[in-house]
Amino acid sequence: MIRQLAVAAILALASLYAGARDSQSPQCAHVLGTGQPSVGKITGGTQLLCYRGYAVLYSSQTRTALWSAERLTREGVDAARKLPRDSDFYEEGRLPEADRAKLTDYGRRSGFDRGHLAPSGDFPDMASQAESFSLANVVPQDSVSNRRTWSHIETSTRKLARQYGSIQVVTGPAFVGNARMLGGRVRIPDFIWKAIYVPGTGAAAYIARNDATPAYSVITVDELRHFTGIDPFPTLSVTMRSTAIDLPPPTPHPGEKAARRVAFAWLVSGDRVEKEAITGQITHLVRDAGTLASLLLAYSR
């Protein structure tokens, strides 16, 4: 009870802080140093929400964020490593009740984790960490991916912040297939991506399926925009948009295997990582045609 009261007090103070920041900087400039990510075709309402350490563009149609943006620094990441993870998920009170995701949507029998877009492990203080547990910052995520491949990607992203001192990060879901809904209310992503911009160096994005497949791809900002309809860094130069910088492999936890990097066309094809190589010219042609069709379908969104 004492812990819950303490968390509630932190969130109340954080809400006052966020409101003050909203009135001074409605575009969440303390986080969106490279400008607000742009979104292509949108049906339904959206709302920009500013928090201490991140910002989200929330969609009332999917009842998830379309993107969640952070600015990670070496000092912040180092401080976050020393902070115990101790917060509770909560419904976002700044959203209309009918539009917000609810705790009951993510019941124990839902089959999905409440997957952070801006992960709690990125935040260096209790108030920022508590805010990261807003359901506005959460998507239905495959439990194996959330706890392994995606967690490994988050660890490598923090390593980049320590290496370069400061990076911009935008994370989001990709909805490219038939709409799958959690409890009839929250849309389940087909993919999850994390775009990273290193000032003065360049940008690239990790992308992974929202399933147990231990694989990921690294793509350019332009490829991400074509595939998802979202441009995480709209002010970048043409060169930085069309060229992917080297991103470190996901860092596995002790005793776990590292995810395998695969070609983006393979990732969207639906093949399984453990599937043996298919032989025979005709079979290869059929498989490649299916992959091309999947890409064309996604890019035509």
Rank of each mutant, 00 (worst) to 15 (best):
R261A: 06
G172W: 00
T171R: 00
L32K: 05
L224A: 03
L32E: 11
E276R: 14
A101C: 13
D142L: 08
A259N: 00
R147D: 11
S132R: 07
A69T: 05
A203V: 07
P119T: 05
R158Y: 02
A118P: 14
I42L: 08
V31M: 06
L285Q: 12
C28F: 06
S60I: 00
R21E: 15
F89M: 01
S23L: 15
V286T: 12
R3E: 14
Q61S: 13
D88P: 00
S143H: 06
G76D: 03
F264V: 09
A208H: 05
T228Y: 02
A263D: 13
T43C: 09
D211Y: 05
R71V: 15
D86S: 12
A6Q: 15
R52W: 06
F133K: 04
L103Q: 00
A127L: 10
S237T: 15
L32A: 13
S151E: 09
D105G: 08
D122C: 06
S269P: 11
R21F: 03
D142Y: 05
R3N: 11
A12E: 13
G200Q: 00
A259W: 03
Q61T: 13
A18W: 08
R100D: 04
N210D: 08
T171N: 02
D271Y: 01
P84I: 06
F264N: 03
R71C: 12
E256Y: 02
T64S: 11
V139K: 01
P199W: 02
G270N: 10
I207M: 05
A101W: 01
A14V: 11
R114T: 05
G290S: 02
L285D: 12
K159D: 15
A215E: 13
G93T: 09
F175S: 07
A118Q: 07
R52L: 04
S87R: 07
G229P: 08
K82H: 04
R225L: 03
T279P: 00
L224M: 04
T171W: 01
M181P: 07
V268H: 07
R3L: 12
I207C: 03
Q129H: 01
R241E: 02
H152Q: 15
V273N: 01
P250T: 09
S59A: 06
M240D: 15
P84D: 09
E91Q: 13
D113F: 00
Y206H: 04
Q47I: 04
H226E: 15
T149I: 10
L267K: 01
S15E: 15
R81F: 09
Q163S: 08
D288W: 10
M1Y: 11
G183R: 07
K275Y: 02
T228A: 02
G121N: 14
S15D: 15
T34G: 07
L32C: 12
W67V: 02
I230K: 08
Q168W: 04
G177K: 14
A80M: 12
G200W: 08
D222P: 08
G183A: 05
Y206C: 08
L297T: 12
M181T: 12
P252A: 13
V169K: 07
L66N: 04
A14E: 14
P119Y: 08
P199L: 09
S237V: 09
T291S: 12
S156V: 03
Y216Q: 05
K194I: 08
S59N: 02
